[in-house]
Amino acid sequence: MPDDDTYRQLISLLDTSSVDYRLIDHEPEGATDTVSALRGHPVSQAAKCIVLRVKVDRRTTRHVLAVVPGNRRVDLDAVRTLFAARYVGFSDAETAQRLARAVPGSVLPFSFDPDLELVADPDVVAQPRLYFNAARLDRSLVISGPAYAELARPRVAHIASPAPA
């Protein structure tokens, strides 16, 4: 199963890097608000991971994994500006699952596919504790934002909607 392979790849990466992390088992859930409640943390500490299709021009399409705090949305206009693109939209489910190597709701804030460019909002990498599903709907992981940034090496840019008041 591809998501089992992705889970194993993630754990291998974490173990070989000697980064502190913790696994959390919970009921299967992929919705950010619900799984944050199951894990017992504020939604703002969750990594919401969305696969986007970015049309730079008529012939060039890129795929981007956008990572924003769980209580915010991806700002598609900010992503369009970042890539000087003509169009940015959500990827179809089949493409997202193939590139992210995980089912919807369990997408990691890591890219293990060279065709999926990783971009994280600065508020994600600044989190003292960052929570996300670990390529499984029934298991999550917590790691510090700076450790995540060091391992995942995302492009860091303001791509989240404004924080709620």
Rank of each mutant, 00 (worst) to 15 (best):
P2W: 14
P2E: 03
D3Y: 15
D3P: 14
D4H: 08
Y7C: 00
Q9E: 12
L10Y: 02
I11G: 13
L14G: 04
D15K: 07
S18Y: 04
V19R: 03
Y21Q: 08
R22G: 12
L23V: 10
I24Q: 05
I24V: 15
D25Q: 11
H26Y: 07
E27H: 04
P28G: 07
P28D: 09
E29S: 12
E29T: 08
G30Y: 03
A31R: 15
A31S: 09
T32D: 03
T32H: 00
T32F: 05
T34N: 09
T34P: 02
A37N: 11
L38D: 04
G40R: 14
H41P: 11
P42T: 03
S44G: 10
A47I: 08
A47N: 09
K48E: 04
K48F: 05
I50V: 15
V51G: 06
V51E: 01
L52N: 03
L52T: 14
R53T: 11
V54C: 01
V54N: 02
V56Q: 05
D57R: 13
D57G: 10
R59S: 13
T60D: 10
T61E: 14
T61L: 07
T61H: 11
R62T: 13
V64A: 00
L65Q: 07
A66Y: 09
A66R: 01
A66C: 08
V68C: 01
P69K: 00
V74A: 07
V74K: 08
L76M: 10
D77W: 01
A78W: 08
A78P: 07
R80A: 08
T81I: 04
T81W: 01
T81A: 06
F83S: 10
A84E: 05
A85W: 04
Y87G: 01
D92C: 07
A93P: 12
T95S: 09
Q97S: 12
Q97V: 11
R98H: 14
R98L: 15
L99D: 10
A102H: 12
P104W: 09
P104L: 10
S106Y: 02
P109N: 00
F110C: 07
F110R: 00
S111L: 11
F112D: 05
D113F: 12
L116R: 05
L116T: 08
L116I: 07
L118E: 00
V119Q: 02
V119M: 04
A120K: 09
A120L: 06
A120D: 06
P122L: 10
P122K: 11
V124F: 09
A126M: 14
Q127P: 02
P128K: 11
R129Y: 11
F132P: 01
F132W: 05
N133D: 08
R136D: 02
R136S: 13
R136K: 15
R139M: 13
S140F: 08
V142I: 12
V142R: 10
I143R: 01
A147T: 02
A149R: 04
A149G: 15
A149M: 10
A149L: 04
A149W: 01
E150I: 11
A152E: 00
R153F: 02
P154M: 00
R155G: 05
A157V: 09
A157S: 11
A157P: 08
H158W: 05
H158M: 07
S161E: 04
P164M: 05
A165T: 11
